[in-house]
Design a protein around this nucleic acid. Sequence first.
RNA 1: GCACCCGUAGCUCAGCUGGAUAGAGCGUUGGCUUGCGGAGCCAAAGGUCGUAGGUUCAAAUCCUAUCGGGUGUACCA
Length: 564
Amino acid sequence: MKSELENQIAEACQQLFGDAARNIEIDLDRPEEQFGDYATNVALKLAKNLGKVPREIAEPLAVKLRETLSRQISEINIAGPGFINIKLKDQVLWEMIKAKPAKSLNGKKIVAEYSDPNPFKVLHGGHLYTSLVGDALANLMELAGGVVNRVNFGGDVGLHVGKTIWSIVNDLGGEHPEKLTQIHDDKKLDWVGEHYVKGNTAYEQNENAKTEIIYINQRIYELHKTNDQASQLAKIYWTCRQWSYDGFEQLYKQLEMKPFDKYYPESEVADLGLETVRQHIGSVYEKSEGAVIYRGEKHGLFTQVFISSEELPTYAAKDVGLIFKKQRDYSPDQSFIITDHAQKDHLTVVLQSIKEFAPELAEATTHLSHGQIKMTGGGKMSSRSGNILKATDILQAARSASVSLPGRESPETVLAAVRYAFLKNRIGSDIIYDPKESVSLEGNSGPYLQYAHARACSIIKKASVVKNMAGKMGTDRIMEPGERTLALKITEYVEVIDKAVIELLPHLICTYLYELAQDFNHFYESNRVLNDPRQAIRLQLVSDYASTLSNGLKLLGIAAPQQM
RNA sequence: GCACCCGUAGCUCAGCUGGAUAGAGCGUUGGCUUGCGGAGCCAAAGGUCGUAGGUUCAAAUCCUAUCGGGUGUACCA
C-alpha cells in the first residue's frame, strides 16, 4: 500500500509540475498521530526546483490527490511548512493488516557466516553477540525469500592452538592423553580456556616456551596433513577439540539458534588459502622478509601477512581459503560475514586482495561488523589475558536475575531477556553490558514483549471458550480512535520488516515491536474487549496484534508463549 | 602517526537517505474507583544533540576543523 501511494503521488507530481518533478523521490513516512497516517514532504522538496513557496505546491497537489486517491484516502491536509498529511480509510487499514512482508530476496542464494568461536579458546560475550545478531539477520533474509545457508568458522589450527596445547601438555606432565579423563565434564571448557591464557602468557614472557609453542603449532598442522589420530599429541588435540565443538553445540542449543548448515574449521580451509595465495605471488601478493604479504597501502590500508615465514597460513590466508571454499560449496549470490568490528580492517584487506584476481567473488562478499560487548565500569575484554566475560556467564547472570522474581525463571523468559537486550541496539556501536540491567524484566525488554503477547492471548482464549461471544463486526468496520491507533500501528509491521531487510538492521524490529506492545497496553487500559458492544472488532484487532507481535518476536529468535 | 567507528536527558539507548514542539526505558517524584493477566497504565521533573565554524528556507541528521573514547595498523585470531 505504501509504495502504491508513493507511486500515485509521484505521478500526480509529474502531471502537475512536469519535468521539475521527474526525479523527485517520494517518501511517505509515519508522522505523529495528530498529523495523519502518512505524511510527505514533496512540496518542500519541489519548492526549490519550481521557485515557489511550498504551500503553493502542496495545495494543488492535495486537490489532485483527493481525486486520484479517493478510494484509499479519507482526508488530506496541508500543515506546518508544507507537509501533506494523509489519512487512510478504515477499510484500507484492514486490508493493510493482512499484507505480508516483501520477498525482496526471492530465491537468492545467501551464505551467512557468524558466531565463529575458536576451539581451544573460551566462547565469550562477543561471540554470543555475533551469534544472536547473525541468527536474527539470517532469519530476516530467509523471511524475505532468501535461501540462506548458515555457516560457522573457527580456528582449530593456528598459534592459539599451539599455546593451549602447550600449556595442557605441561599441566599433564607430558603428552599423556589418558590423564584427560580426570577432567570433569562441567570443567572441560573452562579448563581448556584457562590453558589458552596460560599458554599465551608463557608465549609472551618466556623465550623457551615461545619456541616450544611454535614447534607444537607446526606439529599440529602436520598432524592434520598426515591425518594422525593415534599419536599421544594427536589424542590430546582431537579430544580437546571435540570438547570445544560439543560445548558450542550445547550453547547454541540453549540459545535456540537455528542450526548451522556447516562448520568450517580452519584446518579445512588452510590449504586452499595457502594454495590460492601462492598462485598469486608476484601479481597480487609478494614475498617480503620470508613471509608472503599483501601491500594494502596502495588502497589506503595496511600491509598484512598472509603466509608466515614458517610457511604457515595466517588468519588472512585462511580467510581467503574460506571465502573460496564457501564459493565452491554454495556459489552464493551474496555472502555475508558477520563479526566484531575489530575484524573490519583485516577483512577489508583480505577482500581487497581477492578483488585483484577474483573481483566478482569479492564484490559478492559483504562484511557486516558490530560493536563489542563491554562490562559496566569499563575494562576491556581480552581472551588473551583471561579478563573476559564468557557467554555462559551472561546466561548465568540472566538466569539468576530472573530467579529472584518468583515463578518467572522460565528458560523462555531468560532467553528472551538476553536476546532482546543484545538485539535492540543498532548494529555498530558497542553494547555496555550490565548484568543486572540488561537482564531486567521491565521496560523495553524481551519479557515485556512476551507479557504483552500473553495478555492478548489470554483475551483470545477466553473469547473462544464462550461460543456466543464472537459477535459480528458489521460490514463497514469503522474504528473508534483507540482501536484505530492500534490498527495503524499493526499496518506498520510490513514496512518495518522490509526496511530491516534492506538495511540489515534487526534493531528496527525491536524498536517497532516495543512501540506496538506499548500501543497495545495503552489500548488494553481503556478499551474493554470481552462483553463489550464492540467486542467483534476489538477481538479481531487483538488477534491481529498478537500474531504480528509473535511473528516479529520469532524473527528475532524470541519465543512468544501464549501464557507465562 | 595513519585509517575506521562512536560521542543525544543522571544511566542505557532510539531518532541520522535534512524537515513540523529532539523520543523511549531505567532511576527520581506523584497518581491509577470491586472489570479481559498491575511483568501494566497515566503524569511530572530532567537535553546549548561533545565543541566551533560552514552549506540550507530548514541541521541531532550533510561538510570542515577540533576535543574526548574505542578499534585496527608484518608474521595471534
